[in-house]
Protein backbone atom coordinates (compact mmCIF):
# COMPACT_ATOMS: atom_id res chain seq x y z
CA UNK A 1 0.00 0.00 0.00
CA UNK A 2 1.27 3.46 -0.89
CA UNK A 3 2.24 5.51 2.15
CA UNK A 4 0.39 8.79 2.42
CA UNK A 5 1.61 11.97 4.10
CA UNK A 6 0.13 13.02 7.43
CA UNK A 7 -1.44 16.02 5.71
CA UNK A 8 -3.26 13.79 3.20
CA UNK A 9 -4.45 11.49 5.97
CA UNK A 10 -5.66 14.38 8.11
CA UNK A 11 -7.46 15.92 5.13
CA UNK A 12 -9.30 12.62 4.62
CA UNK A 13 -10.13 12.41 8.31
CA UNK A 14 -11.49 15.95 8.26
CA UNK A 15 -14.12 15.04 5.66
CA UNK A 16 -17.08 12.79 6.52
CA UNK A 17 -16.97 11.29 3.04
CA UNK A 18 -13.32 10.13 3.28
CA UNK A 19 -13.11 9.56 7.02
CA UNK A 20 -13.07 5.76 6.86
CA UNK A 21 -10.34 5.72 4.25
CA UNK A 22 -8.32 8.26 6.26
CA UNK A 23 -8.59 6.19 9.42
CA UNK A 24 -7.53 3.06 7.55
CA UNK A 25 -4.49 4.89 6.18
CA UNK A 26 -3.61 6.20 9.63
CA UNK A 27 -3.79 2.71 11.16
CA UNK A 28 -1.73 1.29 8.31
CA UNK A 29 0.95 3.96 8.64
CA UNK A 30 1.35 4.04 12.42
CA UNK A 31 0.23 0.68 13.84
CA UNK A 32 3.66 -0.97 13.85
CA UNK A 33 5.50 2.03 15.26
CA UNK A 34 2.95 2.45 18.06
CA UNK A 35 2.73 -1.28 18.70
CA UNK A 36 6.50 -1.57 19.27
CA UNK A 37 6.50 1.48 21.52
CA UNK A 38 3.72 -0.08 23.60
CA UNK A 39 5.27 -3.54 23.54
CA UNK A 40 8.54 -2.25 24.98
CA UNK A 41 6.57 -0.76 27.86
CA UNK A 42 4.21 -3.67 28.64
CA UNK A 43 6.49 -6.50 27.33
CA UNK A 44 3.83 -9.13 26.53
CA UNK A 45 2.12 -9.43 23.16
CA UNK A 46 -1.39 -10.02 24.54
CA UNK A 47 -1.11 -6.89 26.69
CA UNK A 48 0.34 -4.84 23.85
CA UNK A 49 -2.51 -6.02 21.62
CA UNK A 50 -5.10 -4.78 24.15
CA UNK A 51 -3.34 -1.47 24.61
CA UNK A 52 -2.84 -0.78 20.88
CA UNK A 53 -6.52 -1.45 20.22
CA UNK A 54 -7.56 0.89 23.03
CA UNK A 55 -5.13 3.46 21.68
CA UNK A 56 -6.69 3.42 18.22
CA UNK A 57 -10.20 3.53 19.67
CA UNK A 58 -9.18 6.71 21.51
CA UNK A 59 -7.59 8.07 18.35
CA UNK A 60 -10.77 7.29 16.40
CA UNK A 61 -12.88 9.15 18.94
CA UNK A 62 -10.67 12.20 19.17
CA UNK A 63 -9.01 12.63 15.80
CA UNK A 64 -11.61 15.21 14.77
CA UNK A 65 -10.44 17.44 17.60
CA UNK A 66 -6.79 17.27 16.49
CA UNK A 67 -6.02 20.80 15.31
CA UNK A 68 -2.61 20.18 13.78
CA UNK A 69 -0.79 22.31 16.36
CA UNK A 70 1.57 19.43 17.02
CA UNK A 71 2.89 16.63 14.82
CA UNK A 72 0.41 13.80 14.25
CA UNK A 73 2.87 11.15 15.37
CA UNK A 74 3.73 12.89 18.65
CA UNK A 75 -0.02 13.19 19.35
CA UNK A 76 -0.42 9.46 18.67
CA UNK A 77 2.59 8.63 20.85
CA UNK A 78 1.09 10.67 23.64
CA UNK A 79 -2.12 8.66 23.57
CA UNK A 80 -0.29 5.34 23.24
CA UNK A 81 2.10 6.22 26.09
CA UNK A 82 -0.68 7.18 28.44
CA UNK A 83 -2.70 4.08 27.57
CA UNK A 84 0.35 1.91 28.28
CA UNK A 85 1.15 3.64 31.57
CA UNK A 86 -2.49 3.36 32.71
CA UNK A 87 -2.41 -0.33 31.85
CA UNK A 88 0.82 -0.87 33.80
CA UNK A 89 -0.58 0.87 36.86
CA UNK A 90 -3.65 -1.35 36.82
CA UNK A 91 -1.47 -4.45 36.41
CA UNK A 92 0.77 -3.36 39.28
CA UNK A 93 -2.26 -2.79 41.51
CA UNK A 94 -3.68 -6.23 40.65
CA UNK A 95 -0.45 -8.05 41.43
CA UNK A 96 0.58 -6.07 44.52
CA UNK A 97 4.08 -7.56 44.71
CA UNK A 98 7.21 -6.00 46.17
CA UNK A 99 9.85 -4.80 43.69
CA UNK A 100 12.18 -7.80 44.03
CA UNK A 101 9.33 -10.30 43.70
CA UNK A 102 7.86 -8.34 40.82
CA UNK A 103 11.17 -8.39 38.91
CA UNK A 104 11.63 -12.12 39.54
CA UNK A 105 8.08 -12.83 38.40
CA UNK A 106 8.59 -10.72 35.28
CA UNK A 107 11.76 -12.65 34.42
CA UNK A 108 9.97 -15.98 34.81
CA UNK A 109 6.98 -14.83 32.76
CA UNK A 110 9.23 -13.62 29.95
CA UNK A 111 11.12 -16.91 29.84
CA UNK A 112 7.83 -18.79 29.58
CA UNK A 113 6.38 -16.46 26.93
CA UNK A 114 6.13 -17.88 23.39
CA UNK A 115 6.47 -14.42 21.92
CA UNK A 116 9.71 -13.61 23.70
CA UNK A 117 13.05 -14.74 22.34
CA UNK A 118 15.53 -12.96 24.57
CA UNK A 119 18.60 -14.00 26.46
CA UNK A 120 19.45 -13.39 30.10
CA UNK A 121 21.01 -9.99 29.39
CA UNK A 122 17.90 -8.83 27.55
CA UNK A 123 15.69 -9.95 30.43
CA UNK A 124 17.98 -7.98 32.77
CA UNK A 125 17.54 -4.87 30.63
CA UNK A 126 13.77 -5.23 30.78
CA UNK A 127 13.92 -5.73 34.55
CA UNK A 128 16.15 -2.67 34.84
CA UNK A 129 13.61 -0.48 33.03
CA UNK A 130 10.95 -1.66 35.47
CA UNK A 131 12.75 0.01 38.38
CA UNK A 132 12.39 3.42 36.67
CA UNK A 133 9.52 5.80 37.41
CA UNK A 134 6.91 5.90 34.60
CA UNK A 135 8.14 9.10 32.95
CA UNK A 136 11.78 8.03 33.00
CA UNK A 137 10.81 4.71 31.49
CA UNK A 138 8.96 6.47 28.66
CA UNK A 139 11.84 8.87 28.04
CA UNK A 140 14.33 6.03 28.02
CA UNK A 141 12.36 3.88 25.56
CA UNK A 142 11.58 6.75 23.18
CA UNK A 143 15.24 7.76 23.02
CA UNK A 144 17.04 4.42 23.31
CA UNK A 145 14.78 2.37 21.04
CA UNK A 146 12.97 4.88 18.83
CA UNK A 147 15.76 7.48 18.51
CA UNK A 148 13.11 10.14 18.96
CA UNK A 149 14.38 13.73 19.02
CA UNK A 150 14.25 15.64 22.30
CA UNK A 151 11.92 18.21 20.71
CA UNK A 152 9.44 15.52 19.71
CA UNK A 153 9.69 13.89 23.13
CA UNK A 154 8.94 17.28 24.62
CA UNK A 155 5.75 17.41 22.53
CA UNK A 156 4.74 13.90 23.57
CA UNK A 157 5.29 14.42 27.29
CA UNK A 158 4.49 18.13 27.58
CA UNK A 159 7.69 18.85 29.53
CA UNK A 160 10.83 20.79 28.65
CA UNK A 161 13.71 19.46 26.58
CA UNK A 162 16.08 20.08 29.50
CA UNK A 163 13.95 17.98 31.83
CA UNK A 164 13.83 15.18 29.27
CA UNK A 165 17.62 15.20 28.77
CA UNK A 166 18.15 15.02 32.53
CA UNK A 167 15.58 12.26 32.83
CA UNK A 168 17.25 10.22 30.07
CA UNK A 169 20.67 10.67 31.65
CA UNK A 170 19.39 9.44 35.04
CA UNK A 171 17.60 6.51 33.41
CA UNK A 172 20.76 5.41 31.58
CA UNK A 173 22.83 5.62 34.77
CA UNK A 174 20.31 3.60 36.77
CA UNK A 175 20.02 0.92 34.11
CA UNK A 176 23.78 0.64 33.65
CA UNK A 177 24.24 0.26 37.42
CA UNK A 178 21.51 -2.39 37.55
CA UNK A 179 23.19 -4.30 34.72
CA UNK A 180 26.61 -4.06 36.42
CA UNK A 181 25.18 -5.40 39.67
CA UNK A 182 23.24 -8.24 38.12
CA UNK A 183 25.08 -9.50 35.05
CA UNK A 184 26.63 -12.88 35.74
CA UNK A 185 30.02 -12.71 34.02
CA UNK A 186 30.52 -16.46 34.44
CA UNK A 187 27.94 -17.14 31.71
Amino acid sequence: MKEYSDEQILDDLASDENFDRGFGLLVHKYQEQLYWHIRRLVHFHEDADDVIQNTFIKVFRHIKSFKRESKLYTWLYRIASNEAISFLKKRKKRRSLGQTEMLEQLGQDLKADNYFDGEEAEILLIQATEILPSRQKLVFRMRYNDDMSYDDMSEVLGITVGAIKASYHHAVKKIENYLKENIDYAE
Binding site: R39, H43, H45, N114, D117, L125, I175, E176
Partner: peptide
Protein backbone atom coordinates in the same frame (compact mmCIF):
# COMPACT_ATOMS: atom_id res chain seq x y z
CA UNK B 1 28.87 6.08 30.34
CA UNK B 2 26.95 2.89 29.69
CA UNK B 3 28.96 0.31 27.74
CA UNK B 4 26.82 -2.62 28.95
CA UNK B 5 23.62 -0.92 27.85
CA UNK B 6 25.22 0.12 24.58
CA UNK B 7 26.08 -3.50 23.82
CA UNK B 8 22.47 -4.64 24.19
CA UNK B 9 20.90 -2.45 21.56
CA UNK B 10 21.35 -4.63 18.50
CA UNK B 11 18.26 -6.83 18.52
CA UNK B 12 14.71 -6.91 19.80
CA UNK B 13 13.76 -9.97 21.86
CA UNK B 14 10.05 -9.50 21.17
CA UNK B 15 8.13 -11.54 18.60
CA UNK B 16 4.65 -11.00 17.15
CA UNK B 17 2.35 -13.72 15.81
Amino acid sequence: DAPLLNGLKARSPYIVP
